[in-house]
Design a protein around this nucleic acid. Structure first.
Ligand code: MN
Ligand code: MN
Ligand code: ZN
Ligand code: ZN
Lengths: 118, 118
DNA sequence: CCATATTTGCAACTCAGTTGCATCAACAGG
DNA sequence: CCTGTTGATGCAACTGAGTTGCAAATATGG
């Protein structure tokens, strides 16, 4: 699908709306929703929530497969442009948890000003 | 307000709805929304998004003041009961960012099974 | 070519969040 | 005690993202 290409071409994670606006072959928002859903399932893209709680999509780098994501990298949220960036080089540090909690996965979200916004 | 008391009495962060359900003096959901908003502004409570992107509220521990939050602790998200827990003892580790990104604040969300759910 | 399976579009609905406006309660000055 | 002003509250309505059902369109394969 064209969607994956658009995601790879972008420097930041894109919302459903942004993708809809960029597709050359006009597609219904529901179709895009369903495609992204399928791609996420398939381990091709991953979804991250921005500060407002809306989903943004980015391509998986590798290692992710059918229902098993290994996107262990941190994400940067720009408070200026609202952009969300995958920090592929930044792995999420393990932390010591209080007794009783069993950890499965962690997400690290760094908030600040992005490259383009300063 | 009664809301702050309810938050302190809970072991986990609560949604607007959950708070509305627990108030003895019935209050409109909009009033609760506005109160929580004000309390957050005032540095009395902080808001954290759960896995579904809905806001949950927890009391601030201390140090937070008028528009300046210092809640630097991690949060635990239970995949079973959907509960969100403040991990007051777990501070968010600083990470090295790629060139150009200026960090202001970080959020660490740990996903797994909570104490009560195992 | 036809039967069947998959994909797509459209309409409609949910749910949290948010806003406008009218009303009510508190309160201070007179 | 009356009154005008201020802030809190309630109700209705709207937004935006996500989601579902169903029917039409398209692909697939015999
Ligand atoms: Mn990513
Ligand atoms: Mn917290
Ligand atoms: Zn930016
Ligand atoms: Zn749990």
């Amino acid at each position: 699908m064209e969607l994956i290409g658009l995601l790879h071409a972008s420097d930041r994670a894109l919302t459903q709306q942004e993708l809809e606006a960029r597709t050359t072959v006009a597609a219904d928002r529901v179709s895009i929703f369903r495609s992204l859903d399928a791609f996420e399932q398939a381990g091709l893209v991953h979804r991250v929530l921005d500060a407002g709680g809306t989903g943004r999509y980015a391509p998986c780098t590798g290692g992710c497969a059918q229902g098993a994501h290994v996107d262990a990298h941190a994400h940067f949220h720009c408070v200026r442009c609202e952009g969300v960036f995958c920090l592929a080089t930044v792995t999420v540090p393990k932390v010591e948890l209080p007794r009783g909690f069993r950890s499965q996965r962690s997400h690290l979200d760094v908030e600040g000003i992005c490259k383009a916004c300063r």
